[in-house]
Nucleic acid binder design. Structure first.
Lengths: 331, 331
DNA sequence: GCGCGTTAGTAATACGCGTTACTAACACCA
DNA sequence: TGGTGTTAGTAACGCGTATTACTAACGCGC
């Protein structure tokens, strides 16, 4: 113990935690110097035991490995979360859950983490409900209808409208949609709902032949686009994921169609590479870093016992690039 | 304490840690049931304090925020690391370091983590040397010449040769190279060295006008390609990063050149989207998951006091797609 | 059938290392 | 001399693990 440098552990503790109102500058400095010289850092486990806090936030990834690998925004979200955590001297523990593993409860129950941000598919997650019921601080990243935990997300419905309205304003009429995932994912369902709302508001048709489901990766976008093309060529397509959109663009190219001359495309996420797709992709920018930051802050608030809004929706922004254009004159 | 269910803490500890050779099945079951009913999990801090272990691996990211955001393989590596960790009931703490922050030492010194995988730029990292000197288990992901810690990486020189040899075999003679980063990054220098070796072996020229530096992102690839084109058109280009390659392809397209008809391109990393670039990119596949797995296992070995090879190099594989083809007959 | 060494099964106890009351020592003022 | 701060130390606690200690029950010899 650094107390070897002249004082008791109590004093050391007080100084190192800035609780030393009553400690004169001289003593304080002595302690600080000794700590530095010895490279002393209070043992984290001991602190946790004494204080009942681990100063750790868990990030639970419920996605499949493939989704995790393909999620271009994950790193950013993680950075945001870590930034929020560090501002309160917390750290982030990442727990990627394999399929079928739903055992992150131990993390919070054992006090390994003081709370958790849960991200990914959730609809069939009894563990989440248990933990929330037991009063553990949990924040959902994304949206889970009916969950008792606060959630942080982008406004998927409004964002999709943003994208589709852009296509409508350009003059497109026959607008298709490729979802980012199966509709059991609320994000996918919400984006599709936004698409439908936009069409309805504009009085445009939204027949089922204009909608196809993607599944996170480019391959699924390719398939979905092919399906849609098989039922007639749309003027434009709203693809609810940039990665899926890349596959869709490939399918269009193979069908001999040009983007945006023949078909306009809007993506979603504004992945770092989107600006370098061919053509550069018009997309809805998701503030990934802020999402992590907001989730982290919400979780820290819950841990501190503060009130947190049930639902936090971050704004998105449409980034217009070259994949969208007015319909060409040629029929 | 779960001992409320009939026995002493000692017994509980023995049962829960499978140390109970001398505990009859009946008692064992009783303890297990009580623990389940109460949702009891031993307090992690207390265990850490008693055992002197936190069962935590730190992943320290020394990269800049932009590099982290653009690193398409990070999630995979993290997954691999987490997989290795969990197999020994460790968890992973991620510590993204902002520029100028070099203070991850506290993580290990305070016992918050039992060891660390350090990834990213390292050449100016005195903290790393200190920690290694103090005997903390550290594994470097990547390569830092002169560091006293074991490292895990792909064989960048050999991998680059793989890529360039492919171009040579196709019949290309004037082969350019765009690095993935500044040459102060050993990975970039090594890949460039591999390129040069391949050319030298084949007796081809490698003039400085054929080499340009990228810097992690697509924009830098665009710039680098433009520079190279300004000094004459190459037959093929080895771009030491898929992301950078995408920018380079864009520059070629803008210059009116077709890939692979006019210029062949080989990338590096085999990012998930590479197969959907236009054209699908020939690339060197980096086993990101295995890299994380290997780093994790090496670190766990060090923590357990086992010997670890100084340097582990994982093999890569060339994935041939449509961005490379023999030189066209037209001059 | 008694005494005793064994062994099995479980409990008691001593840490580990901080934090946080609470307390003691000392100086100074009234 | 008693009051009042100031400064720092003592002791209790948090909750496991590991080691030692104990208590039955058991086997065996006489």
């Amino acid at each position: 113990m650094a107390s070897r440098a002249g004082v008791s552990r109590t004093t050391v503790s007080l100084v190192l935690n800035d609780r030393g109102e009553s400690i004169p500058e001289a003593t304080r400095r002595r302690v600080l110097e000794a700590a530095r010289d010895l490279g002393y850092h209070p043992d984290h486990s001991a602190r946790g035991l004494a204080g009942g806090r681990s100063q750790t936030l868990a990030l639970v990834l419920r996605q499949t490995p493939e989704q995790v690998a393909g999620d271009a925004l994950l790193a950013e979200t993680l950075r945001g979360l870590a930034t929020a955590a560090r501002a309160s001297s917390f750290r982030v523990l990442v727990e990627p859950l394999g399929p079928g593993e739903a055992t992150y409860g131990e993390l919070v129950r054992s006090g390994r983490a003081d709370g958790a941000v849960v991200s990914g598919p959730l609809f069939d997650d009894p563990e989440l409900a248990d933990l929330v019921a037991e009063g553990f601080p949990i924040v959902i990243q994304g949206h889970l209808p009916g969950a008792a935990a606060p959630s942080v997300d982008v406004d998927n419905v409004a964002s999709a409208r943003l994208a589709v309205d852009h296509l409508i304003e350009l003059g497109h009429r026959r607008i298709a949609c490729i979802t980012n995932a199966t509709l059991s994912y609320t994000a996918a369902a919400d984006r599709l709902a936004g698409y439908r709302e936009a069409l309805a508001t504009a009085g445009l048709a939204a027949g089922p032949e204009l909608v196809a489901e993607g599944a996170f990766d480019a391959a699924s976008g390719h398939r979905a686009m092919t399906t849609i093309l098989g039922q007639g060529r749309p003027d434009a397509v709203f693809v609810a994921s940039d990665v899926v959109a890349l596959g869709a663009i490939g399918a269009l190219r193979e069908a001999g169609l040009r983007v945006p001359d023949d078909v306009s495309i809007v993506g979603f996420d504004d992945v770092p590479l989107a600006a370098y797709f061919d053509p550069p992709l018009t997309s809805v920018r998701v503030p990934a870093h802020d999402l992590g930051l907001a989730a982290g802050n919400a979780l820290l608030d819950r841990i501190a016992g503060r009130e947190v809004p049930d639902r936090t929706l971050l704004p998105t922004e449409l980034i217009v690039r070259a994949s969208t254009a007015p319909p060409s004159m040629r029929t």
